[in-house]
């Protein structure tokens, strides 16, 4: 996409939202669920620790939140930039 395209602002806003969403996506699964689990081991959750909860349930709940946030945010962004379907 060329820089002077009228849709450039829309697309870079979209890229920013995707980037932030994917950082959270990776943080709760690969981060809290696997790599950073030792750091969370002090926080007890029902007989185990917070990292275990993120690996088995927490990450899934955050995934849901990310998708619904993205759908809501993008549908609004479409209207702001006048590229929605209506």
């Amino acid at each position: 996409m060329s820089d002077n395209s009228p849709n450039n602002a829309y697309w870079s806003a979209n890229m920013r939202i995707i980037l932030v969403s994917l950082i959270i996506w990776a943080l709760v699964s690969f981060g809290f669920g696997i790599l950073l689990r030792p750091l969370l081991s002090g926080i007890a959750v029902g007989g185990t620790d917070l990292g275990f909860w993120f690996a088995q349930q927490g990450s899934i709940l955050v995934f849901l939140a990310i998708i619904f946030f993205y759908a809501w945010r993008m549908n609004r962004l479409d209207r702001e930039h006048g590229v929605d379907e209506e």
Binding site: A55, Q56, F63, I66, I67
Partner: peptide, 10 residues
């Protein structure tokens, strides 16, 4: 399996 088969939807 839990993270992998749900995270793909994101």
């Amino acid at each position: 399996y839990l993270m992998g088969w749900t995270g793909g939807y994101v």
